[in-house]
Design a protein around this nucleic acid. Structure first.
Lengths: 148, 148
DNA sequence: CTATCCTGTCAACATGGTTGACCTATCAAG
DNA sequence: CTTGATAGGTCAACCATGTTGACAGGATAG
């Protein structure tokens, strides 16, 4: 049972290592990846919702988001409520995000292919029940995130 | 399938959150926990092997390990080769480690109790195959992975 | 008009990681 | 014994990423 703790530690490290390498070559970090990922999955996400998902302060998000905007990987436009910015990936952003997410998907696909469909299903079941309900603090626009 | 990526992110965060809170109250960090954990699981571990497991430089390990030695949570004594230090947990170290690991074990136990023995088995199977090969015991390359 | 919300930004600071350099011991081999 | 490699400790500079706190501006709700 104690093995499970180590598994989590090493598996998570292994899982993120490949994408980290790509990010490193682009001069970006894991936060940039997360922004790309969650904006990609939730087009027109607001800054506030992004903060809630990532669980960081706006000051922590500021620099990486600024960098992505400057590199034209992310754009924004005013929403109905013109105070909020709706974030979206540019084409270049979509491309990079697909590349990053791709190596992780392939990693998982390799593993699931080796372990079987049943293992995949059960793994997800376990992973889904791990967060309890502590993570999402706000309602998010589009779906795809762990529900509250 | 993309869901699996998010699951990893959120599940890992949730999994470490409780222990982090206890550590925070003791003025310690995740690195201290990892040291306590791996020394606890591998009594008479050498500093070098610990570095290899954690994948950090000796300078990064220095301060946290120093702190644990000063607080008498960890001790060392010379090995056969008197250059190497064999690390062990003190009684106090064992107590704290058990408390920290305890919340994670209980967390997992709760989840496995809810999802079933089959889910537990399959989950471990998947997690074991994620790092490519199983838990590195000795002599791995220090890759310097970003903290997560 | 006023209060509140969403966003952006500056500054101070903490933590934890990296290199690089230099030090002591200890061991192994010539 | 001398030489060189190994295990470990430590100082310093630096970078990345997070935190609080404060403040400003535009937009909206009352």
């Amino acid at each position: 049972m104690r093995e499970a703790i180590e598994l989590f530690y090493f598996a998570y490290r292994a899982f993120t290592a490949e994408a980290d390498q790509i990010l490193d070559q682009s001069g970006l970090g894991r936060v940039h990846h997360r922004i790309l990922y969650f904006v990609g999955r939730n087009p027109d996400l607001s800054v506030n919702d992004l903060l809630a998902i990532l669980g960081v302060t706006k000051q922590a998000l500021h620099a990486p988001l600024r960098a992505l905007l400057d590199r034209k990987l992310v754009t924004h436009r005013p929403g109905e409520d013109r105070r909020v910015k709706r974030l979206r990936l540019t084409d270049a952003g979509l491309t990079l995000e697909a590349r990053l997410t791709g190596v992780q998907l392939q990693h998982l696909a390799r593993v699931f292919a080796a372990t079987g469909a049943k293992a995949e299903r059960e793994w997800k079941t376990v992973m889904r029940s791990l967060p309890g309900r502590s993570i999402p603090r706000r309602r998010i626009k589009r779906t795809g995130l762990p529900a509250g």
